[in-house]
Design a protein around this nucleic acid. Structure first.
Lengths: 126, 126
DNA sequence: CGGCATCCCATCCGATACTG
DNA sequence: CAGTATCGGATGGGATGCCG
């Protein structure tokens, strides 16, 4: 994060102490990617998300959602009712990022056959 | 990772034990993203990468490069010379993934002003 | 220069238990 | 249902020292 001409802020994730670094960690982290991608499919309740993001613990999902809400990428709406009903959905910025993450997921999944083969070849040599 | 008709392998990163999960962790992890994006700019030597990926330790860069090499996304070439010269570059698959990661970086950096504002608003309320 | 080996601490994260 | 609180083990990751 450095100053450019005319006080325009430039964010550079390659710079050690740029504020974009922790944001990238949240967004591209193990659970951030999957949570945002799941929410791109539509609004989810907490336990719906837990089932969709297979393997995530209550704690990590809660923590991830809080961080994404703080970043303005996810909105949390509490519907007063018994039993309680809380719904999570994407903001406009969240949608844009989730779209890109979904492209990444699709690409990596498409590359997996080659990757698996490379891993097997690598492991065979040692 | 489940079987589809006709023995076609389908990789699903949402599934708890899909082999694509650790690959996503490497590729989208803190240092994986930056390392791949840096290599998209061209071949780099080890210490060039260390300077470009500001803040990465020798240990983590070494670890990340090994994982990426194992996944077939990065090639390591040793040029016999004194002092030793080792060059890292992207494979074709590595380029495709690094391209997508660079798009993600650019998007997140572009969203940073809004994100910073959301963080400040969130923090002010508690 | 380009590493690997070791030590050690911080945090991540899952499991469990509890609450409104 | 939708969480919070706490604990303890696993992992991440920096610092240092050594080697070809």
């Amino acid at each position: 994060m450095v100053m450019a001409p005319r006080d325009e802020l430039v964010f550079d994730v390659f710079a050690r102490n740029c504020t974009s670094r922790p944001v990238m960690d949240t967004v591209a982290g193990r659970w951030g990617i999957l949570t945002l991608a799941a929410l791109l499919e539509g609004t989810h309740r907490f336990n719906e998300l837990r089932r969709r993001v297979d393997g995530v613990s209550e704690k990590m999902l809660s923590q991830t959602l809080h961080a994404l809400e703080r970043d303005g990428l996810v909105t949390r709406s509490v519907l007063s009712a018994i039993p309680p009903r809380v719904e999570y959905s994407l903001t406009a910025a969240g949608k844009r990022i989730a779209d890109k993450l979904t492209e990444l997921i699709d690409l990596v999944e498409a590359e997996m056959p080659g990757i698996s083969q490379a891993q097997a070849a690598y492991d065979a040599e040692r």
